[in-house]
Design a protein around this nucleic acid. Structure first.
Length: 480
DNA sequence: AAACGTCCCAACCGCAGAAGT
DNA sequence: TACTTCTGCGGTTGGGACGTT
């Protein structure tokens, strides 16, 4: 995986900054920045050995190191501490990281506390590169078992009648049994297990790219989009075998924006990276899996077939590979976006996705009606306002997957008291609302205290703008 | 072989909260 | 209570290594 020897580090240093280290003026003199030298390391180790950790500003004063206290602390904590575990993460550690991230989001320090010998920086780096890989490979970030674990723990806890968010003291970070999921909120979601089709590649699209395309067409697929957005959250919790919707591409538009030009072999590599359990013996299978599907073009021309590639993979290898949630489309946005919020990232990517659902099917649809060809849909949607909302997205406090979902769940439940028409995800009904659905939903769901931030509001905002719709709504500019 | 893109990691930055005065 | 300093955290960046075209 990633093994960087001290030799390499030293080499890096000498090549990198040693000749012209960045210098920062400080009251006591110039402070050096950039990579540490072994000499500096020795000085720091010596100092800490003698004086112990803490009081980092004193290090600079008393040891002669031209480093700020902050830098010293970081260096010690991340590299010099004797109890650090070097080398690649073990499978068990990786699994643990995924679990922890599902429960607490980007709380790297807390996660590090759960993984002896590992640093927050290390975990953060691992996670960031991992989600990039998964994103690139078009795969979701949480294994099904993790979701189920979260779900099961939560359901069990319903008996306790408590609803708590992740504690802020790090003592019960993953004790899911403190959570309560209002079952009723998700009972309908099972329907979608058969509604949707997983399309990893199609989803492997930086939202920004999509949004920049300026492809818009607001029309009859409104409800479908609405539903798809709403499904997203449920997907994670239900996390059974339902699979996400294919996005629909207007073939008259530039298809490239939908389908990144990733070489099949590269995708294969990525899959193998993502699925560490896959050894060389399955290369050919994987390769043919990837290539034989004519991955990208197929999504364009037949975007609504029920793709079985993913399931095949799952069947072949028995269980979801690490980091994969079968059927989840918990994909992330571009790498710059925070992954703090599992749902957030997911939403971010989902929002601009182009999805179809037969409006006649009702809010949650069934797979009974044949899926139309992409040409027949010919619909792309862009809602700048919603886009912005999504991209700005959701800044939950602690941001674990569970917490976010739970919070939203509770919020939705409350919203039911308001109007049946506005209940949960029946967004097709929103058009019938006597109230301004957009405003209403926003008020109901846009609770800034939500762990999802404005997720629900954003989603519903997008929904109602689309379905309700007034194109003269500020910030809403359909392109025809 | 060169150019290019991506991966990976160390380190920095800004912010917030805790602790001290 | 207000202010300052310290500490820790999370996000981001820079750059070498490596792989691909």
């Amino acid at each position: 995986m990633r093994i960087m020897t001290n030799g390499v580090e030293d080499n890096k240093r000498s090549k990198g900054h040693q000749d012209s280290p960045a210098i920062e003026e400080a009251s006591n003199g110039p402070l050096k920045k950039g990579p540490w030298t072994s000499t500096e390391d020795a000085i720091l180790v010596d100092y800490v050995t003698k004086h112990g950790e803490g009081n980092w500003n004193a290090v600079q004063k008393h040891s002669g190191l031209s480093r700020c206290g902050k830098s010293c602390r970081l260096r010690w904590a991340n590299h010099l501490r004797p109890d650090l575990k070097k080398g690649a993460f073990t499978i068990e550690e990786e699994r643990r990281i995924i679990e922890l991230h599902a429960s607490m989001g980007n709380k790297w320090a807390r996660m590090a506390a759960e993984l002896p010998g590992r640093t927050d920086n290390e975990i953060k780096n691992y996670w960031n590169t991992r989600i990039k890989r998964l994103q690139r490979a078009g795969l979701p970030i949480y294994p099904r078992e993790v979701c189920q674990q979260v779900l099961n723990g939560s359901q069990e806890s319903q008996n306790t009648g408590t609803l708590q968010t992740t504690d802020t003291h790090g003592s019960n970070l993953i004790q899911m049994d403190h959570f309560k999921i209002p079952e009723v909120e998700f009972e309908k979601l099972e329907i979608n297990q058969v509604l949707l089709s997983y399309s990893p590649t199609v989803l492997d699209i930086p939202a920004s790219n999509m949004l920049k395309q300026g492809l818009t067409n607001v029309g009859e697929t409104n409800v479908g989009v609405t539903q798809a957005f709403c499904l997203t959250q449920a997907d994670i919790l239900v996390s059974t075998s339902y699979t996400p919707v294919h996005m629909v591409v207007d073939s008259s538009h530039n298809n490239n924006f939908m389908f990144p030009t990733i070489h099949p072999h590269k995708r294969l590599r990525e899959l193998q990276t993502v699925f560490p359990s896959l050894d060389g013996s399955v290369d050919s299978d994987l390769s043919s899996f990837i290539q034989s599907t004519d991955y990208y073009s197929e999504k364009i021309t037949g975007s609504f077939h029920i793709s079985s590639e993913y399931d095949s993979l799952m069947n072949t290898y028995g269980q979801p590979p690490l980091g994969v949630v079968r059927g989840s489309h918990a994909l992330l946005n571009d790498s710059n976006s925070s992954s703090s919020e599992p749902l957030c990232g997911l939403m971010k990517l989902e929002l601009p996705s182009l999805q179809y659902s037969d409006p006649q099917q009702g809010s949650w649809g069934t797979p009974t009606s044949p899926l139309p060809s992409v040409e027949s849909v010919d619909t792309l949607i862009q809602s700048p306002a919603a886009e912005q909302t999504q991209l700005d997205c959701l800044s939950p406090r602690s941001s674990g997957l569970l917490e976010a979902v739970l919070y939203e769940s509770g919020t939705w439940k409350n919203s039911k008291k308001c109007s049946n028409h506005q209940t949960s995800f029946a967004c097709s009904d929103l058009e019938d609302c006597s109230l301004n659905p957009y405003e209403t939903e926003w008020k109901i769901h846009g609770d800034p205290n939500s762990p999802l931030g404005h997720s629900a509001a954003s989603v519903l905002s997008a929904c109602t703008r689309i379905s309700g719709s007034s194109s003269d709504e500020p910030g809403f500019t359909p392109i025809h």
